[in-house]
Amino acid sequence: MTDQRRRIVLVEDDDDIATLATMALQDIGGFEVTRFSSGEEALAGVDKAKPDVFILDFSMPGMTGGDLLKELKARPQTANVPAIFMTASVMPSHVAELRKLGAIDVFKKPFDPMTLSDQLRATLAKAGC
């Protein structure tokens, strides 16, 4: 499977950030991005999106990124899809906690849209995805 055909499900409650990340991943990285603005919305539409990777904002009102990942891991269709958290808090202890939840990496906010796709590719390559 080539990068261009990889589908990303991005769950981010902040519209601006979501737009930027989408543009960065689509226009610069060439990924296919499906956006959801909450965990609940993502759970409702994820099956249709058929993602190759999840990028989840950790701090969302209501269902957090962590709660969402638990739900996704519980579903057979999405249990094996690699997930990456985006968070402003990248304290080593916090990162370790997020990894324990099943994330393959944690991206720091604010991200550089120009390098976000490269960062994603490096992470996927490292995880063997």
Binding site: D16, I17, I28, A88, P110, P113, M114
Partner: peptide, 21 residues
């Protein structure tokens, strides 16, 4: 600072993408 960070991320990102495009 945390609250500033989110809009800043957007501004920086938007400017980078605008420059790129």
């Amino acid at each position: 600072s945390h609250e500033l960070r989110t809009p800043l991320t957007s501004i920086r990102g938007a400017l980078s993408l605008l420059d790129h495009a």
